[in-house]
């Protein structure tokens, strides 16, 4: 492990809640580690589980999928489908050998800036303990 390695997390955040929550954390100048790269998506159910595998292939140390709380999805039912898909996908990815701390699914509302910052901090810490991810990784 190189001395200056820092965890890299790819975050998929739906534009209506989770992304707005992250925005709020930013505009309120909350401090959280710069480890996350956010990808804005229309709805959490836009995330195909193979996006997660792709992120690990391309060098992510962790992946976060974040959407509106159940009941709050802008498209009414998108996140209920997300819940089913990722309930399976999370377990399946772990079954293939990825540590569970590296991949999380969370609901974050537009008002939960603090929660978003806390999540990133927690994940970054967990991943720091695990070290860089080499599993499923493309050889550079």
């Amino acid at each position: 492990m190189s001395v200056d390695w820092k965890p890299k997390i790819v975050g998929f955040a739906c534009r209506w809640c989770a992304y707005a929550g992250a925005d709020l954390a930013g505009t309120s100048r909350m401090k959280y580690p710069p480890s996350i790269r956010l990808v804005r998506i229309p709805c959490s159910c836009r995330v195909d589980p193979s996006f997660v595998v792709r992120a690990f292939q391309r060098g992510a140390d962790g992946v976060l999928v974040a959407g509106c709380h159940p009941g709050d999805c802008h498209y009414t039912t998108g996140n209920y489908l997300t819940r089913r898909r990722f309930s399976l996908a999370k377990r399946f990815i772990q079954y293939m050998g990825i540590e569970p701390e590296r991949f999380r699914v969370e609901w974050v509302s537009a008002a939960e800036g603090g929660r978003f910052a806390g999540l990133v901090e927690e994940m970054t810490e967990d991943i720091r303990k695990l070290g860089p991810n080499r599993k499923m990784r493309e050889r550079l």
């Binding site: 209920y80 489908l81 898909r85 990722f86 309930s87 772990q94 701390e101 590296r102 699914v105």
Partner: peptide, 20 residues
């Protein structure tokens, strides 16, 4: 169609194990 439908009280299958 387990992945083409849902129910409002589905569990969050990612919880309960380490990491979350």
């Amino acid at each position: 169609e387990p992945l083409g439908e849902f129910s409002y009280d589905d569990p969050e299958g990612w919880r309960g194990e380490a990491g979350q």
